[in-house]
Amino acid sequence: MTTKYYYGDFGESGSGEITANNKKNVGIHSDAAGHDWPLWEVFIRSKQGLDHKHMGSLHATDAQMAIENARDVYTRRMEGVSIWVVESKHIHASNPDEAESLYDPANDKAYRHPTFYDLPDELKHM
């Protein structure tokens, strides 16, 4: 055996010399792909005063079901007081290849940060 297997990574079938003696065909439809319910991203406000935070995703047929599923899946331990869901296909993301042009310019604008300003210690509440 030359392949290294890890926890949560048990290799693919067909490798190795032992074969299962109970393999049988299971009814996988040939047109199997594309039946998943739409994918939704879930955002949860964990308590009043905080922003909604991305928690993960799930499948649901519509917004209402997505909110309910989010309640069942992501707030089993009282993690939230408010839920947003948005269908994943509606999320537009910036291109990571452009990260340099988008974010690096902010690097040399130290004057945007409060610590840039050297003020006397006597000055309070600023």
Binding site: W37, L58, H59, A60, E68, N69, D72, V73, R76
Partner: peptide, 11 residues
């Protein structure tokens, strides 16, 4: 029938 609903009915 689907993971999300397995969790719901269990709740």
């Amino acid at each position: 029938p689907v993971l999300e609903q397995d969790i719901a009915i269990t709740n």
